[in-house]
Amino acid sequence: MAFRVNLGGEGEEAGAPNQQGRWVVLDPGWRSSRTGQAFAYLVGAGLSFLICDNRQLSLPDDCCDEVVTNPVPVDAITHLGPGVQTSEVQRILKPGGVWVHDNTLRWVKP
C-alpha cells in the first residue's frame, strides 16, 4: 500500500498523516485555513497529524511514495520558523516517489 504524507499548509487530508508545526497544538486559537475547524475537531473527525519541525521530519529516509504540499511556504523562513524543506521532502521520498505541490507533480526521486 502506498504511503502518502501531507506536509503542512492549507487543507488537511484524510488517509494521510498531516504534518504540522507545534503551533497547531500550542495555539488554542489555531483553525484549519480551508475550513476554519479547530485541531481537536479535525482529530475527532478521524484526521491524523504528525507534529514535528519542518527541518527535521520524524520520518525515516526513503519511506514515502508520495509527498503532498498544499499551499505552504517552501525553503522560506516565516514568522513561524522554517517552512517545508526541499531537502527533507527529497530525503523521505522513496526512489521513484513523487512530490506533488499545489496539486501538480513537481519532482520524482531518481
Partner: peptide
C-alpha cells in the same frame, strides 16, 4: 513575509494575538 516575527504583525494590524494563519 515582511513580518519576520510575531510582534511585527502589530505594526500592521493591532490586537491580533498569535498569528498562525
Amino acid at each position: 513575509a515582511d513580518c519576520r516575527e510575531q510582534r511585527d504583525f502589530a505594526r500592521y494590524v493591532p490586537n491580533l494575538g498569535s498569528i498562525s494563519q
